[in-house]
């Protein structure tokens, strides 16, 4: 894939080409390639699936199959900030459902969805593993514990 019709020379997705060049000829490269593409672009887009298939010499349906099989891969653009509200047992008994409802109301989206301005994504999560802080949520790598629904708006406002 040499270039697009936009008039610029060079490949349309230079980072993708750079990743594919590093894995050229390697067996078992599909999952690491998908991981790096996602790290570079935030998600795995359709053109990337087709280009990966071409470069690795495997059917695009196989690449799509692997990308949709693993929860770690995302096929839609994600928000700049990922919110994970713990749904584990300890959080559940301490009101996790109300925390999640407050996040959903504040952002106007459901778990698995992304706000239109690509600011936030709510990611479903079973347990974050810090029950002592229940109910707890994470925004990116920050942990926010001992939550009440009225604290949610203020916490989220800090993430631009």
């Amino acid at each position: 894939m040499s270039g697009c019709a936009c008039g610029n020379s060079g490949p349309q997705y230079p980072e993708l080409e750079e990743i594919l060049a590093r894995y050229a000829g390697q067996r078992g490269a599909l999952i690491p390639v998908l991981q790096e593409v996602q790290a570079a672009y935030g998600y795995i887009f359709e053109d990337a699936i087709v280009r990966i298939a071409e470069a690795l010499g495997i059917p695009a349906t196989s690449v799509y199959g692997v990308a949709t099989f693993y929860a770690q891969f995302h096929l839609k653009p994600r928000g700049r900030h990922v919110v994970r509200v713990c749904q584990g047992t300890a959080c559940h008994v301490r009101g996790a459902a109300k925390i999640l409802a407050a996040v959903e109301k504040e952002l106007g989206i459901k778990p698995g969805e992304t706000t239109e301005d690509l600011r936030f994504t709510i990611e479903p999560v079973a347990c974050l593993g810090c029950c002592g802080l229940a109910p707890v949520m994470m925004v990116n790598d920050d942990t926010h514990g001992r939550l009440t629904p009225d604290k949610v708006a203020e916490i989220l406002a800090a993430y631009e």
Partner: peptide
Amino acid sequence: GEVQEVAALGYVGRGWDTMVLPLF
């Protein structure tokens, strides 16, 4: 995929959500 090497159909998703579908 194997006899015709066309691979127009593939598995998509996992577990209960698995389907056999054309690309995308």
